[in-house]
Design a protein around this nucleic acid. Structure first.
Lengths: 139, 139
DNA sequence: CTAATGCCTACCAAAATACTACGGATTTTT
DNA sequence: AAAAATCCGTAGTATTTTGGTAGGCATTAG
């Protein structure tokens, strides 16, 4: 019931690229240092993102990665799907009996609704805010 | 990003108990056979449900389990929380930076909205329907 | 030429998942 | 009293996922 570091760090990468969009390539080293993550691990995460066509690489010194589209056209769902697989609370929804199938579909659609309607632009702009205020943390 | 068999089989158990509510205890053997699952594995799943007070056991021959409350008062969220832990797409939401934190919170609340508003009564009654019609499966 | 990058393959330790095995405790039926 | 049906508890285990690390080659700016 969790999004792993793959999806989370992948989003971190994409948000950083969104912030630098239009200003040339950003290296993984920069992103890794800014977020205190392993550069080598990020390399493994960005490979699928490149294969999926979400980012483009520029090799050599002063190289790095850039988004292949404007931040407002790439969603969190695009990123999560590449790194975590299809968005669904269970494998093989179709095989479940009707009551549970409907439940999984409602959950899936609820998650999709959020992920597919949140763009990198949204995420990048809110990343520059200060602290959030008054959000309730209940479980 | 998945609900494991713990939560899924746990819901299966609870739905069966909901169907038999008011008609005496239902044994795990019956439930295991009806759903083609390992009885021994279900024993391990129902232990936490019993500890959480969602079901009550009756030992000995012709024993089994019964819900401790009416099916309309127990939600899918109650069951999932016991077997899968707190409903949240990431551990430690508070530690994330604002943009991602908001995203996780929106996802969490969307999932909670579904799970906490679906009761065992809902699930048990729909379980008796035939096939569903016309549901789109898109990813 | 050299430094900074991306790219690729392999390996690995720890945790979670999905069970199985075994035996004991309790209650009902015969 | 004995047998059968059930719940209860602990331990082991194979497989997969997670979250990396190691090492080195390929490419390009300066």
């Amino acid at each position: 019931m969790k999004i792993s570091t793959k999806g989370r760090y992948g989003l971190t990468i994409m948000i950083e690229l969104a912030k630098n969009y239009g200003e040339g390539p950003t290296s993984l080293k920069t992103i890794a240092q800014a977020n205190d993550l392993s550069e080598h691990y990020l390399e493994q995460l960005i490979a699928p993102l490149r294969n999926a066509g979400l980012v483009k690489s520029i090799r050599g010194a002063y190289g790095g990665y850039i988004l292949t589209d404007v931040p407002s056209k790439i969603t969190a769902g695009d990123v999560i799907r590449v790194l975590e697989g299809p968005i669904t609370p269970v494998e093989g929804i179709e095989d479940e009996e009707p009551a549970k199938r409907e439940l999984w579909i409602r959950i899936r659609d609820a998650i999709k609704g959020v992920l597919d309607n949140t763009t990198l632009e949204d995420l990048a702009s809110h990343s520059e805010d200060g602290e959030m205020e008054g959000y309730m943390f209940y479980i």
